[in-house]
Design a protein around this nucleic acid. Structure first.
Lengths: 320, 320
DNA sequence: GAAGTCCAAGAAATCGATTTCGTCAAGGTC
DNA sequence: GACCTTGACGAAATCGATTTCTTGGACTTC
């Protein structure tokens, strides 16, 4: 790795001039040419670390997501990456596993690595954005909001829950259960509230046990669905508040010998890679990628110096 | 962000001593305590950038994969992350989209960011590892190998292809087509060779058009399968050389009104989130996560100074 | 033609850590 | 007691860029 000094020596100028050439400052055409030639000859790439130390900032943004194996989040990540790439930024992907400890560690890393900004799907309400915020690094919350006054991009989750539940109603189902995510995670909580609202409005019965809190993965949905099917009066239809629980629930239905195209299953999110989706499955498509591009755009605006008060953008999900 | 100088001032010692406290050098117990107290009071976190500039290395490893939305690669990424995490390293995930240009850019970034090492699923044979290698940063190729003399972890792809094809034979199929990935990608090429070997050994007919090269995604598999089914003499069974093409192929089968549990479909890899897999689908499970942990382990050994000649570890895939 | 303005470009400071080097005192050896 | 070793620790160099400060020359302006 050639340094700026070697380039300067070869080009017969000072290091400062070399720096100026690459940072768009006033340098005479001849010296400019000399520097570029020397740089090319030495295959010079500026040392990002040194630059970062001096500039106290970098062209890297951190993206903290809870589960890299969830297609919803990878689609979101793609959106972030596409947008960042365009702007010449790199994205560092971090897996928090919905563990506040891991999340905190990554936030500290982001701070001590002088990252330009952070996009975060908060694992918990207590996500400590204090450290990173006090650094002046912008933060955008995505998918879920936080108590901190930062930009946020989310989905109208309650509307999504309402749409999904209503679709089940319209298909003729009445005894509709809900498999919700862990308590305290805003996004699925809101979807569950949508379900409850529809159920209440329509005066549908919500027997004890028709609401299940499961972990976010396929196995959680699977177990919850098994439980539901084992009830004395099992539901005719079920809403799961995220994609992977939907996968698990569908499997449980099939394994129980119930015809999945008769049973009413609604999922907020998409059943990933499920082209074979039984027609009866209702899916509310979440704009995952769009969530990512929007968040990235907002973050880049902040990085660019935009100082307006925090905004929250709410995207709408649509029935697929 | 407090600096080492502020800590030193508060503790009444020199910056060098503060550094020594955090890097395990000889410091008297009293000063040690004083420094730790001061550091705690100021919430001191060492500036990674400065440290990296000085040490010319960091505790970050780069992982370059072709497609973050492919569950095979996310599982692999998880493996890498778990292992890295244990060793106190962070992982930076980069999406190459199988684009040599993007790949090259990321490799340069890895170099200019002083990353401790790189794990790479090469997009092409020409992946220029020269720059990064000349830096002395270790590189481990994963899933695919490269002409450069670096460590590699791969799957016995030919055996996987053989196992899958043989299983189709054993199920009574004879007219077996193959949907292979793009030409030039070693992993799927080898799987295709396994298919051809079985077909040849068993003297099965391989009519013109029974070998398709498709893009790696579900849509590629879908289109290829459509083509195959439209042949004058369509195959009775098909092998796809990766997971996503299998998803697409399965969809095409179903859409064509063919009963997927009659048709013979074999996939090298797992049909992601496909719990509803028709019984006839043969899957050769690839040890994706294990690939990741193994690669990370090897990389960490190299980072630790291991200088033995390059090794290639071949993992075995098993019929699921 | 003297004074003021402007601009290219080098010298040197700077970012915040780590590390080398040197100093000084304590302890050991003959 | 003279000499050597050892260990703690501060001063200063170092990593490689950016940026401020400074200088000297060209160009205006009156």
């Amino acid at each position: 790795m050639a340094t700026i000094y070697e380039v300067a020596a070869l080009a017969g100028v000072s290091p400062a001039t070399v720096s100026r050439v690459f940072n768009g400052n006033t340098v005479s055409p001849e010296k400019q040419r000399a520097v570029r030639e020397a740089a090319a000859k030495l295959a010079f790439t500026p040392n990002k670390t040194a630059r970062r130390l001096r500039k106290q900032s970098s062209e890297v943004i951190a993206l903290l997501i809870p589960d890299i194996e969830n297609p919803f989040f990878t689609a979101l990540a793609r959106g972030v990456e596409d947008r960042a790439q365009q702007a010449g930024f790199s994205v560092v992907l971090c897996n928090t596993d919905d563990d506040p400890g891991k999340e905190l560690r990554y936030l500290q890393i982001a701070a001590s690595e002088q990252m330009a900004g952070v996009i975060l799907a908060p694992a918990s309400d207590e996500a400590d954005l204090g450290a990173i915020a006090s650094l002046g690094s912008p933060v955008v919350a995505v998918d879920r909001t936080t108590p901190y006054p930062v930009d946020a991009v989310k989905v109208d989750n309650r509307a999504a829950g309402i749409a999904a539940t209503t679709a089940l109603f319209d298909a003729g189902h009445r005894r509709i259960a809900c498999i919700a995510g862990p308590v305290g995670i805003e996004s699925t909580e809101d979807r569950f509230l949508g379900w409850r609202q529809v159920m209440t409005t329509r005066r549908a019965a919500m027997p004890e046990g028709y609401l299940r809190h499961a972990n976010f993965r396929a196995d959680g949905g699977y177990a919850a669905m098994k439980d539901l099917l084992a009830l004395p009066e099992p539901p005719e239809a079920v809403l799961t508040t995220n994609n992977l629980m939907g996968v698990g629930a569908l499997q449980a239905v099939v394994e129980a010998g119930v015809d999945p195209s008769k049973f009413g299953l609604a999922v907020v999110g998409e059943l990933p890679f499920m082209f074979l989706t039984p027609p009866a499955v209702v899916q509310v498509r979440l704009p995952a990628r769009h969530l990512g591009t929007t968040a990235a755009t907002m973050l880049l605006e902040r990085i660019g110096g935009d100082a307006q008060p925090p905004r929250t953008v709410v995207l709408r999900a649509e029935l697929a």
